[in-house]
Computed example of a mutant assay.
Amino acid sequence: MQVPFIKMHGLGNDFVVLDGRSAALPTIDAGLAAALANRHTGIGCDQLVVLEPSTVADLRVRFFNADGTESPACGNATRAVGLLLGTAATLETLAGVLHAAPAGDGIAVDMGEPRFAWEQIPLAYALDTLTLPVGWEDLTQPVAVNVGNPHVIFFVPDCQAVPLDRLGPLIEHDPLFPERVNVNVATVEGRSAIRLRVWERGTGLTLACGTGACATAVGAMRRGLVDRTVRVTLPGGTLTIAWGEDNRITMTGPATESFRGTFELGRFAA
């Protein structure tokens, strides 16, 4: 069985998109997702994105990390889907119904409301999520935010100097985070500018992470470090994040279609 796919990226955070809205797709499980994401023997991507019909929105979107685990949200991939659609649309996700629409040269996504309660992150036990009294070597006292998936954010003098490839997996798998966690290290460069690197749960170091940018911006806003609209620069490029008075987060940035192709299902399915 030949299955068509679309390769896309948002600031270098790359995706394989399977469109099952009009034609049925094979069963997507963790094994198939991980096999397709493998950069040596598969197509290669940070996330597999699956489009399906929806009864509550214009379409349903599912996100699978490179290790095959399913994630409730992926901001960069949501922008990529918005680019494919080319018009304003509602998207059903495990994190709720999101809204995507063209905005200038990019796509704006309403990412919904952030959550701050310890059980909403979730944490293993009650802690102050604005300043978690925990640390891993020089990374201490992070903010915890859930924006569809869980994030901790460490504000540091120089995010480039942090050995995130080593500390990221330690923090991701710490028992404090029963559903694991995305790890962000951020440097505030002014009232409207943040520099960010992200260790993404189930994927590892990425060139960009949309939900990480949202979580980091909101965390900095809660601490009074930046204004309510801020530019977040990641290794792959810059996103604009706004946290409105209605408590909803809007993320705006580019997305790109790289190429289209097909794969033989029998090469990947168990």
Rank of each mutant, 00 (worst) to 15 (best):
A77Q: 10
A89V: 13
N65P: 03
T131S: 14
L91D: 01
E137F: 04
F154T: 00
R79K: 08
L98T: 01
A88C: 10
P72G: 05
I107H: 03
A73P: 00
P114K: 09
S71P: 04
A108L: 06
L98G: 06
M111P: 03
N146T: 02
L59I: 11
L98Y: 04
W136E: 13
G135T: 01
L94R: 15
R60G: 05
R115W: 05
S71K: 08
G112Y: 10
A117I: 07
G112L: 06
D110E: 11
I107V: 14
L132E: 09
A100I: 07
A124N: 11
R115Y: 04
L132S: 09
I121F: 12
S71A: 15
N65D: 00
A77P: 02
F116S: 04
V61S: 01
D105I: 11
R79E: 02
Q141S: 13
I107T: 09
A101R: 14
D128T: 08
Q120G: 03
N76V: 03
A77G: 14
G96E: 01
Q120K: 13
G96F: 04
H99T: 15
A100D: 07
V145I: 14
G75L: 10
N146S: 12
R115D: 00
F63N: 00
G96Y: 04
G106V: 06
A101Y: 01
P72W: 09
P133K: 05
T87S: 15
A100N: 10
V97N: 02
V143L: 01
G135D: 06
L98K: 13
P142N: 11
P102K: 09
V81C: 12
L94A: 14
H99L: 13
A103P: 03
Q141N: 14
D110W: 02
F154L: 03
D138G: 06
L94F: 05
F116V: 07
E137Y: 08
D67A: 03
A66S: 15
A66Y: 05
P102N: 08
